[in-house]
């Protein structure tokens, strides 16, 4: 499999704190990678650097061999990198369908002045996506009225609607109840399985990473301390100590 995302010596400081240190990483096409680590281990910083929200102090980021280190979030998104957020970033005063229609308009590159946003083909596709994410009953509801779990799914649905090459999800089950988190992940994985989207997700929960990723990366104090097959990596005593605080 060819390398889709590569970071070389990626380093980022917040004041005197080194949030990410000399990160050298390759993500291959079609991969489903789970990133785990304790608070402040550099997981979200990694996502923010790859998507252009933050700029590194040193190092570079390559997307399919192209240097994207200094590009803006908008430019990186247009190159096929989409993301979801730990706190869903949505248009609260628009309906669920309108949120999706905007994503579909953005993907088509036709953010025009004349033709309507509510056009038939986008409405059909939007309805399909909502069904895949079990959100179809909320279609005409304002996002501000949605429950937290549905907002989380919609945030990811907006990223998926862009049909990215690389999807980055920041804690997709954060804020979702313990009973619902596997259902949320089942919905996500079944949707992504039918696509060729390379996926990287950040998680706190070892069970989620073990169950849904094909490769696990463990971050600790800005460095990758373990990388490999999830069941092997997550049973390692050193990893447990770094993530859970005890072996």
């Amino acid at each position: 499999m060819s390398v889709l995302l590569e970071t070389v010596g990626l380093t980022r400081f917040f004041g005197a704190v080194c949030a990410l240190e000399e990160l050298n990483l390759c993500i291959h096409e079609g991969d489903m990678v789970g990133i785990i680590g304790s608070n402040g281990s550099g997981k979200t910083t990694f996502l923010n650097l790859v998507t252009g929200y933050l700029k590194p102090a040193r190092g570079c980021i390559l997307l399919a061999g192209r240097d994207i280190t200094l590009l803006s979030p908008r430019q990186i998104t247009r190159l096929g990198v989409a993301r979801s957020f730990q706190i869903p970033q949505l248009y609260l005063n628009l309906t669920v369908m309108e949120n999706l229609l905007l994503a579909l308009a953005a993907r088509s590159g036709r953010v025009g002045l004349w033709a309507r946003l509510h056009r038939q083909n986008w409405m059909r596709e939007g309805q399909e996506i909502l069904k895949q994410f079990n959100l179809d009953r909320y279609g005409e509801q304002r996002v501000a009225e949605l429950p937290e779990g549905a907002r989380k799914l919609l945030d990811i649905a907006l990223a998926v609607a862009l049909q990215p090459r690389l999807l980055l999800m920041d804690e997709p089950t954060a804020g979702v109840s313990t009973q619902d988190k596997f259902a949320v992940m089942d919905t996500l994985v079944s949707t992504l399985r039918g696509s060729s989207i390379t996926t990287v997700f950040v998680e706190h929960d070892m069970d989620v990473v073990r169950r849904y990723s094909r490769r696990a990366l463990v971050f600790d104090q800005g460095r990758v301390i373990a990388d490999g097959e999830p069941s092997a990596v997550l049973t390692d005593a050193g990893v447990k100590r770094a993530v859970l605080g005890h072996a």
Binding site: R74, T77, L90, Y91, L94, A103, R107
Partner: peptide
């Protein structure tokens, strides 16, 4: 026109849609 509404609610998401 809807992008203006979207900007009112969330500029970050607008940028992360590639707009």
């Amino acid at each position: 026109g809807y992008v203006l509404f979207a900007i009112r609610d969330n500029e970050v998401r607008v940028a992360y849609m590639g707009i």
